[in-house]
Design a protein around this nucleic acid. Structure first.
Lengths: 220, 220
DNA sequence: TAAAAAATTTAGACTAACCTAAAAATATAT
DNA sequence: ATATATTTTTAGGTTAGTCTAAATTTTTTA
């Protein structure tokens, strides 16, 4: 049986909200994320539970079943592959691709996804540094640090972002912070936790805590 | 205002069925093409007429308004560009792309279409030889001949197909008849109008009337 | 040209996905 | 631990796009 556009979105969002530890997702959180009302979420949860895609006990929140997880990961795979296509092949900025990929991710053809994957050279990460699940549905989250966890004097590699908002990504563009950039934390302001960070051995930038909290990095 | 997936499909089909002379399309023809019942078509026609996308008088069939034509041509442009992408970039066969393009054609981003067009090198024809409307919405149907109109002894270029069914396209593949092939009509059987056709100066093939009627060709 | 046939529309109903308002269950705080 | 607040579900309703059956209009045919 085929899942609808809307069902796929719910599964994808439940996956995102339940995190790697598979914690229960609340009705209100889903209402927020889907921009619908809690009552509508309840309706959909009943339906997804009937289809065996989620574990759902009234008032107790939901988690994905194995079969729901499979569907969610397929959607995520498609989303991230299309984002690579849009950035690498069509020349979109990383701040422009989310909404379009949100549509493309629901195009239902297995062979399309696999041919796209091959065309793109089997990329492992999307333009925001998020890992792309493989064709078998394996998704391994690399354990990056958040820039706030980096000590003064350390040099780290910029590997991804937590916030995907265009405004945030554009801010990074203006700062010259791209994936793969080398960030050297030079100073951390005790008062507001803002940091001085040297980018690629070049200019030094002041980075607010708000920004630091959304940068995923890796020790070299 | 945004047109729905379904509305776009109706407009595209009305465009196709009303031909280049803009003849009225009947309710039953639309029911057939959309795989719905006539009553459902009537409902949709009322809606499209209210939106100013079609000219509709009860019992009199429909034609597209200028604004409906614009929408239809945009959808056709997207459909054909995506088909080029699927064949040229992803390596699909021309018999495999129709259904996938049917989904992709409804992805709603102007800039996506224009970037895709540029990426593909502004192609003028899709993998079946159908002309691709330009960004301004100009669609010029080249006036090809049908192979049945070609006289014995003439050499023509294979330029397109009328039937897009996978089974027909696969039959052409097996016969070595591809876009751009040179077809030389050697004989026409009086009885059943089947023809002997030499392909690219090589092997000679027997082609049934059913096939001839669906081959678009051009004198050299 | 009137009767029969075919095409089209109307009437009334269904499903998916949403809504609001009210009821019920759970969580929080005094 | 009970009252209050919050969260979630239920009840009943809406819209888009579909359906069947019946009514109406147009076309065909005798």
């Amino acid at each position: 049986m085929q899942n609808s556009f809307t069902e796929e979105n719910y599964l994808k969002i439940i996956h995102a909200l339940s995190g790697r530890d598979g914690v229960e997702v609340t009705t209100n959180a889903l209402a927020e994320s889907t921009s619908t009302r809690a009552a509508s979420v309840t309706d959909m949860l009943r339906k997804l539970a009937e289809k065996g895609l989620i574990h759902y006990k009234k008032y107790q929140g939901v988690t994905l079943t194995d079969s729901g997880e499979k569907v969610a990961i397929k959607v995520i795979r498609k989303h991230r592959l299309w984002e690579v296509f849009l950035v690498e092949k069509l020349g979109f900025g990383w701040d422009e691709v989310h909404d379009i990929a949100e549509e493309l991710e629901h195009i239902p053809s297995e062979v399309l996804v696999e041919k796209l994957d091959a065309f793109l050279g089997h990329p492992k990460f999307d333009p925001h540094g998020d890992p792309i699940p493989d064709a078998k549905g394996n998704l391994t989250e690399p354990d990056y640090l958040i820039l706030t966890d980096v000590h003064i004097g350390e040099k780290v590699l910029m590997m991804g972002v937590l916030d995907h908002a265009p405004s945030f990504l554009q801010h990074l563009d203006r700062s010259g912070i791209t994936l793969g950039a080398v960030l050297e934390v030079q100073e951390i302001n005790e008062y507001d936790k803002s940091a001085s960070v040297r980018i690629n051995g070049g200019p030094t930038l002041f980075i607010s805590l708000e920004v630091s909290k959304n940068l995923l990095v890796q020790r070299r």
